[in-house]
Nucleic acid binder design. Structure first.
Length: 721
DNA sequence: CCAGGGGTCCTTTTT
DNA sequence: GGACCCCTGG
């Protein structure tokens, strides 16, 4: 348990008054915390002090993060300070908070109680439907790009009407009318209508709709005012316009808003994050205090020197220069490899050697890259060399085809009107309802103004008898499943589940069997190599429903829960919302983390630290990425790419290794590559330029490994691990 | 009208 | 390594 005065080593650079401010200022507070200055620690100290020192009821505190990973980590750290009380703090991502607000008050916006949350594949399908309705040929346009445009508007709080205005003005002033702008503006309102007709919201809506609700609904505002008195927001530099408004509403007139962030680590402009939110915090929240943390406790002098040199290339920042009392540390290795395969292999090999030489755990290493596709080569190399690894992030679980299909079946059972779900599964597995039939039904629905589902229930005469029968069997199966779901949910609400499968999960797995999903996955020739993994994904899905049901009941019986806190029994809709947000207890636990090398994008690495970090693929076209060179606003994009490298470098505590390739396999052929422009910005005296080691044959490296291991054992007496 | 096979394209970053 | 489209055969 924490004492009233939290002793905080990492705050020693502050004077007493500043320290007091960090711990318990009333009113707005901005903590500008550079990389490695103990940002999360500061938040945790503040929370602990509010509770133990100031006697604030933990239930009145809400801390908001961007990722579930960050929320989990913070929860864990708060718990280690103040114990079980930590559970009563609301610790949530922005998006989960959005779900929560819409659950409670969404019906007043006309949302169904059991609204669905659409992720990318469903969003695209909805967009395609919407585009079809206004006779747009979706082959002529890249729908992903259109969706990105709509999403951009939503994150900037631009309504369909305003988007239309904007586009028209742009055309009137004679600037080049981008066909995509026009199309996006045209389809935007239809897209929203398509979502609503399916009882669904998208990711952006999870932020936008709560803000709209809070602006118009006094009761929702009052509920928020009563619920939370102290608000903390992590990684504030990554908030967008909508999140700023949400922050305003959360803070309310108490304005007990503490935000923590670092403008140099703003790397999400592409999804609407506005670094202006942190740069102009004092203007948005007059009277705000600003505290700077510039003492880095993480990295060696050399690593920090490289980071400072790289970020100095950006203008328009809160000026700061991180310092550290840490040692000078090892030189930063820089290696040029022949191609991506040798690079990956060299990384795997080097990690093996260093682990032995410095007695490190696998979990102390991380390999960072710009794009998820770079992971594949690394995975191959790591597998070949038997280096345990875990890939963090990547294609999200629910974007995998088999998972998306299964989720659509689940959603169709929850909501019979979910057109997007129905169209996805109506002929998968193939049951004789082809494209022509589906298009005909969609056409009739559009012409008569009825819903897709209702036309489906009453198919037009000109559809073949076989298709009609198939449709009716399909609908009957879904209806039956829905009936059984009601029973399963009733049972799930009755009492805490015992050992084994939980009621809703059990229902889902029977449903999947009935459909023959696993068989369909296995028999699809395209899945020849991936069938096992894909079937595993399906089983993971029921596994996470089990975890969800247990979690809901655990919360019900949590001894720290107050009697008046609302509690709802588990429902499939609830499970689906958490799934869409990737918010369910992860399988991989701490032990696994320690026993494997982490592979992830530079984006995913933000907020983490590792003893020994490799950043690979430092080439023009990768970092900075080609796409950020193309756009007109390339200066901003290049600044963001530079920040990305800054984030990567500052993840390292003791050692940093940079590398690039001279050639790279790409789309079949080979491509010449040039070194990243940012490499030239690192002072040469910090770098140890190494030539790539000649590639070892597998037998040679096995021998080397054996030999090395034997030597280490002899040297250390007993190095058994 | 439907299912399955073969060819072709591209491949940022994430909740 | 895919995702997606088009074409052909049934």
């Amino acid at each position: 348990m924490a004492s009233a005065t939290v002793q905080s080593e990492h705050l020693r650079g502050l004077n007493a008054e500043q320290r007091a401010a960090v711990l318990h200022t009333e009113g707005p507070l901005l903590i500008l915390a550079g990389a490695g200055t103990g940002k999360t620690k500061t938040i945790v100290h503040r929370i602990a002090h509010l509770i133990s020192g100031c006697g604030v009821d933990p239930a009145k505190i809400v801390a908001v993060t961007f990722t579930n990973r960050a929320a989990d980590e913070m929860r864990e750290r708060v718990r280690s300070y103040i114990g079980d009380q930590a559970r009563r703090i609301t610790l949530s991502t922005f998006h989960s908070l959005g779900v929560r607000i819409l659950r409670e008050h969404g019906t007043r916006l006309g949302l169904p109680k059991r609204f669905a949350v659409y992720s990318t594949p469903d969003q695209l399908a909805a967009l395609k439907t919407a585009a079809g309705e206004i006779s747009i040929d979706d082959n002529a346009f890249d729908l992903k790009r259109v969706l990105a445009r709509i999403s951009d508007w939503k994150t900037r709080r631009v309504s369909p009407e305003q988007a239309r205005q904007q586009v028209m003005t742009t055309r009137a002033t004679g600037t080049r009318a981008d066909a995509y702008e026009v199309l996006a503006a045209d389809v935007y309102p239809r897209y929203d209508e398509t979502l609503r007709a399916s009882g669904a919201v998208d990711f952006d809506d999870l932020l936008l709709l709560p803000v709209q609700l809070l602006e118009t609904d006094e009761e929702a505002r009052r509920a928020l005012w009563k619920r939370w008195h102290y608000v903390l927001i992590d990684e504030y530099q990554d908030t967008n316009a909508v999140q700023l408004e949400l922050a305003r509403h959360l803070a309310g007139s108490r304005r007990n808003l503490c935000v923590v962030g670092d403008d140099d680590q703003s790397i999400y402009a592409f999804r609407g994050a506005d670094v202006g939110n942190i740069l102009e915090f004092e203007r948005h929240f007059p009277g705000a205090r600003v505290i700077r943390l510039e003492q880095n406790y993480r990295s060696t002098k050399r690593i920090l020197g490289a980071a400072n040199a790289v970020i100095a290339g950006n203008t328009a920042r809160h000026s700061k220069r991180l310092r550290t009392d840490n040692g000078i540390g090892a030189p930063i290795d820089y290696i040029e490899h022949e191609d991506d395969v040798t690079e990956a292999d060299a990384v795997a090999q080097e990690i093996m050697l260093r682990r032995m030489a410095h007695r490190l755990k696998w979990g102390q290493f991380a390999v960072l890259y710009r794009t998820n596709t770079q992971a594949r080569v690394l995975e191959e190399a790591f597998r070949q060399r038997n280096v345990p690894y875990r890939v963090i992030g990547g294609q999200s679980f629910f974007e995998r085809k088999e998972v998306a299909d299964a989720l659509a079946y689940l959603r169709a059972a929850v909501n019979p009107e979910d057109e997007i779900a129905l169209r996805r599964i109506i002929n998968y597995p193939a049951r004789g309802i082809g494209r022509t039939t589906v298009l005909k039904i969609a056409d009739i629905a559009r012409e008569t103004g009825r819903s897709f589902a209702s036309v489906l229930r009453d198919p037009p005469k000109d559809i073949g008898a076989a298709a009609v029968r198939a449709i009716s069997e399909f609908l009957q199966m879904i209806d039956e499943a829905r009936g059984q779901l009601e029973e399963a949910e009733a049972q799930a609400s009755r009492g805490r589940p015992g050992e084994g499968p939980t009621p809703i999960a059990q229902w889902a797995s029977a449903y999947f069997d009935r459909i023959g999903l696993e068989d369909a996955v296995r028999s699809d020739p395209r899945n020849a190599k991936s069938a096992i993994a894909r079937v595993d994904n399906l089983r993971d899905l029921t596994g996470s429903i089990i975890r969800y049901e247990r979690r809901v009941w655990d919360a019900r019986f949590d001894i720290t829960r107050e009697d008046d806190e609302p509690w709802n029994p588990p429902t499939l809709a609830g499970a689906l919302a958490l799934l869409a947000l990737n918010d369910f207890e992860e399988e991989d636990d701490k032990r696994e983390d320690e026993a494997s090398v982490a592979l992830m994008t530079l984006h995913s690495a933000k907020g983490l630290e590792f003893s020994d970090v490799f950043i690979v693929g430092l080439e023009e076209g990768i970092l900075p990425h080609n796409r950020s060179l193309e756009d007109a606003g390339a200066v901003d994009a290049l600044a963001e790419e530079r920040r990305l490298l800054y984030v990567g470098i500052t993840r390292a505590r003791h050692r940093l290794t940079l590398s690039r390739c001279r050639t790279r396999r790409r789309a079949g052929g080979r491509e010449e590559r040039l070194p990243s422009r940012y490499l030239a910005e690192i002072p040469q005296d910090l770098l140890n330029v190494k030539s790539a080691a000649a590639q070892l044959e597998p037998e040679q490296s096995a021998a080397l490994r054996q030999n090395f291991f034997a030597q280490m054992k002899a040297m250390l007496g007993d190095a058994g691990e």
